[in-house]
Design a protein around this nucleic acid. Structure first.
Lengths: 144, 144
DNA sequence: TTGAAAATATTGAATATTCAAGAATTGAAG
DNA sequence: CTTCAATTCTTGAATATTCAATATTTTCAA
């Protein structure tokens, strides 16, 4: 399996990159209706539980590294989608919260994202989709 | 499936991004032994069939857009890993070829990449891996 | 055959990301 | 208690990516 001369299309790393790129492109296209990059959808979705999340926690959850997240959050604060509060229990930390405006946007974005998943379900099938999700979760687990 | 309030970890787009990030990180780590980014491994691997590949073809194959590829190829030409030849049949095109030095490096990189796949196979299992590959291929197919 | 449209690749400016360093706070050992 | 290491976040410079425009060549219709 995956011999040295195998074509690149047989490598798991490549297949994942290719699938991710394609699905991401489709999602990007939908979210662009609201002028929002995929990462901001992720941020709003995580924060929409209403709890405060530290920057480190957020960075992990939305798959961005710290400095990139800081700068993206700066923009979202300017757009009044989220706001910062210093953590009273540990003042090194900053807790991020979603604003009312952010909640409204988040709902619209979720609709678009769910649309996409339904579109995938139609062309790809219910069974394949849930099986793929299961395998991905287990791959991620086994990598920690 | 994938209701509006479902956590982000249930979205296919997110699971793919997460798995891709993790596997890519591991591969990056191995390839860094040779000081080469993942994209250059892909380029060398595609070119190592010995045929000339146009920039457009390459860009598709290695999942980069045109300007990014052009600039990465510039660096690889400086490192004498690849070289450009104008396509005699269509002079708008540039054909990329791998050099001897590139072939030597490509072999080393393939070893590292195969190592990684074997490592995944061990912790994740043979059956899961091939099933995941099958599903990813089919997802990519159904998206075109 | 000519001229306009399409295809291919590159360039330069604008934008985004990353790396390394810094500032503030906490933890914990002596 | 004090001090030094670790944690958390941000900043600025270096690097990389992207968008829009350009140059070149080909295609194809009139």
């Amino acid at each position: 399996m995956a011999k040295p001369n195998a074509p690149i299309t047989e490598h798991l790393a490549y297949l994942l990159a290719q699938a991710n790129r394609e699905i991401n492109r489709q999602l990007e296209l939908r979210l662009s209706k609201e002028g929002v990059p995929v990462e901001q959808w992720r941020i709003l979705k995580v924060l929409s539980d209403g709890n405060g999340h530290s920057m480190g926690e957020l960075a992990d959850a939305v798959l961005l590294n710290h400095p990139t997240l800081t700068k993206m959050i700066d923009r979202m604060v300017s757009d009044t989608l989220v706001y910062r509060v210093q953590d009273p229990n540990d003042r090194r930390k900053v807790l991020m919260f979603i604003s009312d405006r952010g909640k409204v946007l988040s709902k619209k974005l979720n609709t678009l994202a769910v649309d996409q998943e339904e579109h995938i379900l139609e062309s790809y099938g219910n069974k394949s989709t849930s099986e793929l999700k299961r395998l991905l979760e287990s791959l991620i687990d086994s990598s920690n």
